[in-house]
Design a protein around this nucleic acid. Sequence first.
DNA 1: TTATTGTGTACCATTATAGTACTATTTAAT
DNA 2: ATTAAATAGTACTATAATGGTACACAATAA
Lengths: 154, 154
Amino acid sequence: MLRLSKLTDYATVILSFMAKDETQVYTAMEIAATTGIAMPTVSKILKLLVNAKVLISTRGAKGGYALARAPEKITVANVISALEGPIALTECSISQKGCEQASGCGIRSNWSLINQTIHHALESVTLADMIKPATVKDTVWNQEVMIPVSSLYR
Amino acid sequence: MLRLSKLTDYATVILSFMAKDETQVYTAMEIAATTGIAMPTVSKILKLLVNAKVLISTRGAKGGYALARAPEKITVANVISALEGPIALTECSISQKGCEQASGCGIRSNWSLINQTIHHALESVTLADMIKPATVKDTVWNQEVMIPVSSLYR
DNA sequence: TTATTGTGTACCATTATAGTACTATTTAAT
DNA sequence: ATTAAATAGTACTATAATGGTACACAATAA
């Protein structure tokens, strides 16, 4: 099904909430209460997003989390790789060890092209796009977004 | 990691082997022997590919499997959905049940755009592309393939 | 009629995921 | 200083998904 993990899904919900006021500092508890996601789970996700530098945290009393940069600069690819590690479809796109299929492994380099295409697609959508009303009109999606595949080689 | 299952990976190996002679009928055993994938696993994958109409099978003695159509007409999206069901990133892109996040679910329709983009990317690559030598030169990838996102709404 | 080959379903073991718990660390307020 | 409010990090557990296997059934050619 080519699915994302539930945690990644939650992360987008959390981030889209936080993006409503991009400079405000939210505590994990606030976020849990507003989104309806269980507190420990929220906490786990926030930690991962901090490690990936999508969020910044301040510890101690009056601490909390805030976006590390403007929603326009946070891509879906950022979020996914924060939660799930490198974006790649097949095992051997990440590590090559022990991949010795007897036949037909000129495939690999072609997979990597597909990976890049998808990665590119995911990088072209930002958090700002995601919180726009979905009226399709005047979203970035409506402006003939084109993906020049050759640009992947640069 | 946005990963594909191992079975899907195997499927591409199997199909790229079969595409070498697109009209020949191969038995599951032959395929297992050539690819080095365990026979029962090969069999399972072949069954799924038949159900998805990527392969056709003939039963009985002298039976076996062959491509259902030319490699140019078999897309990566076909293969993935055969093995993993509908291509969609989030649960609620498939079934909507019980998705009542307290806040911020104008997101969903935007996810569906991303889904479509990725689906489109996967449909633009065929089995024929995958078995081409990976020399990048004169692959379809080198011809400024562009994906007009607005076309997704048609 | 028999050997060969695919079909379908059910099952099990292993792994990954989601979720939880707990301890340590940092900072603001008193 | 001390306390309370927060995040950080790590380790653990239960559940679900995945990969892989087994077996009875169906179809076809010789």
